[in-house]
Design a protein around this nucleic acid. Sequence first.
DNA 1: GCGGATCAC
DNA 2: TATGGTGATCCGC
Length: 618
Amino acid sequence: MASEGNKPPPPPEKEQGRNSLRHSLLGPSLLKAGQDKVDQKKVGEIIYNASKGSKFFKHEEKRDEQLTKRIEIILRRKKHLESLDLSPQIRKVDEEIAALEASRDLSQIIVHVDCDAFYASVEELDRPELKVVPMAVGGGVLTTCNYKAREFGVRSGMAGYIAKQLCPQLVFLPLSFPKYTAKAEEVREVLVKYDGRYEAASVDEAFLNITGYLEDHPDMTPDQVVEQIRREVLEHTKISVSAGIAPNARLAKVASNQNKPNGQFRIPNDRESVMSFTCTLPVRKVNGVGRVFERELSAVGVTTWGDVHPQRAILSKLFSEKAWSFLLNCYLGLGRTSIHPVAEYERKSLGTESTFKDLSGAGPLREKLRATAAELEKDLKKTGLAGRTVTVKVKLHTYQVHSRQKALHRAVFSKEDLYLHALPLLQELEGEFQPLKIRLMGLRITGLVSTRKGVGRIGDFFKRDAQVEEGEAEWEVWPEESLDGLLPSGHLSQEVEDEEQLAIEEATKVSLNVPGGGGGTNTIPDQPPPSPPQMAAKEEKWECPICARSLPADDAVFNEHVDFCLSRETIREVVQESAGAEVVVVKEPERKRKEAKARLGKPGSKGGGMDRYFLKLQ
DNA sequence: GCGGATCAC
DNA sequence: TATGGTGATCCGC
């Protein structure tokens, strides 16, 4: 077993790279069911021809090239590792494997239930005539489609206009979420009878632990129980579901895809069955392996989980600790065996974003930011949450995505606060990408605290330090923070690295993001160290933070104008929101303004003036 | 803590 | 004419 690398080498990455973009354009659902009748070559041609030349396509090409480069680096590192004596590493890994084996739990029967083409199926219940025609739900990008549509090569995640080219008679339906959630509830009414602590993984998926149910019904096999669940769901809701039965959640999830649609598959609870299943299982079938990771693995010769073991020493050194641990767990067919209600998970962020026709110009961008802030406020109020970190996200017209975030001293939730704290971040982006022309804007808030007293673990946990005040007079801490937000915070300098040389030695460990992976530690928020006020603007003009008008760089004129704007808009809104609280606008002390001016001329963001005011709620 | 990336649904 | 929205995690600074 000590012989590594006896396998024939994988095809050169260049070969794989050539087809990878086309492969990725074909979408992630290629492996899924319903594709047997499709002439994939022809579909690929259509998609390729319909896509090429578009900005989206050009962006995909860029990303693809970038990945190809990254893979070359990985391969170089691999080559280097192959020249070393790895027998100590093999021993180390084998100990790791033994430890994992010792922890293997085959005592539970876990079921993953997955509704077939859920949204499309729900729509078909409303309009049965749609069953026999190709139909898709969603507009610009398809959310899902029925199996009839899949025969044409139409898939979820596909651009609507491309689907139309593949299948001109395709029927498009808009999304109706209330309908889907209502139907999902009906499905869950059945599931809860088999596991009172079932776990809703998404609107149309759930995990059950039926170990207890089986103990109560010793005459039934797991397969029989699941057949009964599926039958009952179908009778009760008219929705067909597929299911996987396995010793853990990871395998159950894979298994539910095996006999889709309207089928089930069991991986028995013994080690041999598990290992022989994973051995030939393509890596991509497992949750957590996406397009990128699949290509990286393929480049180093891993296409099925069985490929991990012969290369275990090299892989353990090639990948990050987390990624390697993931690989090993998948190879061994291990996964979580505890299933619990989703209510027991804590939300960590809340955000909103939207796509629109290309947008640019200070005024329109601010208008959009206001609207986005209002949208987020709505959701925050609904969930009774506020948060300490604000993130602004934009997608440029080129499809490049960028974000800027800022941790605040206290939690915020009102659209005014959101806007005021997000604006400097937007200004940063405006400075960096001139002129800022975007097709998407998003606002997200993290570091959540509950605004509802007495309920919710988050609120209880943070109560002492960070719970938002309710109706309590408080100085807004906006100005200092705004100043921080405006500056290109030190490490923005993009040093172009000589990747040729840094490549092999430096740890370019391959990364991994698996859902439900390691845990971040929650720390009680405290005051960040004070940072010196700065401004980043080199324009002769100053920009009004409220209406975005360009103003002469003159204190008196500028202040007067902003005063006017503030009294006109912000104050009115703040007053409305805080029900009678009086708002006083206070000029910032002269000293700070001088400090700020001293920093003028730094390249990057422009604008600024926002930071000259305190808002005080009384 | 920040920003970019990846992933799932 | 022209490719989504929400939330999470990981990595390397």
